[in-house]
Design a protein around this nucleic acid. Structure first.
Lengths: 146, 146
DNA sequence: TCCTGCGGTCTACATCCGAGACTATATTCC
DNA sequence: GGAATATAGTCTCGGATGTAGACCGCAGGA
């Protein structure tokens, strides 16, 4: 029984594969470098569950805090605040305070934030297309494991 | 100062924007539909922190359990097991058991899993490019908030 | 006057996650 | 022969993390 075979036959764009192969911030070298890994750093933000949703919502237009919470739907104020701070820190979202009587705060995407929309849209697009297959796979899996 | 303005002037591919606009599974309608939202369902998997890393690792070649853990580097057995189960359930990863004396288990990407690599690679590519700006933004932000 | 909306913060409670111990079998080393 | 190691996980415990909801000060509307 051979182990770690070359893999199943697939046709994947070599350039795409190369991009992924380049991402070598794994167990290589010492653990310290894991923290500095560019992809990991950024992917941690994406893997925030809420960050992605916020980015997508803000892609339509700027929102004020309460409106943003209503639009996303099921996010707590706490997590909305926290996620927005992180996105602001990373320069993806801009926070602008208007000195009206009850101060109004508007959140919008920066140019960098906008640039993230392209790959995010690719992901969303794939998700929409794959959803049926995933749903079927889940039912199959759940039926097989009582 | 007008509120909820049309947005800052940006040049984003209209098709890209349309994809995101289409994703309207937010607070619209009742909360029940949130659970069935295709994008949310799939994005939850992406937002798993480890799922994405596992997918990227498996894009190189199939791995056995322990080898996969070593390759990813800082994932616990617990989360590796859990994430792999979810990915298997969603039909992105295939689990094959070889009945050797200590059973060998090999994990590999399915066709569906391979198809996810294209948008994931786009994301990784963007992350690599944006990393410098993000790092600078973080330093700026941290310096401004003592 | 009371109530609502604004942008948050704070506090309890619940859930999740990581580290490490533990299983059982087979091979390797001394 | 006996100890050590590797295999693929499972289990448990303590700490981190997330959620729901109360609360705050201020302003406008009924």
């Amino acid at each position: 029984m051979t182990r770690e075979r070359p893999g199943n036959p697939v046709a994947l764009d070599p350039a795409t594969r190369a991009v992924l192969a380049d991402f070598s911030c794994r167990a290589s070298e010492d653990a310290g470098t894991l923290q500095d890994c560019p992809v990991r750093n950024v992917l941690d933000r994406v893997g925030d569950k809420w960050s992605l949703l916020i980015l997508i919502t803000l892609s339509q237009r700027p929102f004020r805090f309460a409106a943003l919470q209503r639009e996303v739907g099921d996010i707590s104020k706490r997590m909305l605040t926290q996620s927005l701070r992180m996105l602001e820190r990373d320069g993806l979202v801009a926070r602008q305070v208007f000195p009206t009587k009850p101060p109004a705060v508007e959140y919008s995407l920066t140019a960098l934030g906008e640039s993230a929309l392209t790959p995010v849209a690719a992901l969303v697009s794939w998700a929409a297309g794959a959803h049926d297959q995933i749903r079927d796979a889940r039912h199959l899996f759940d039926a097989a494991t009582p």
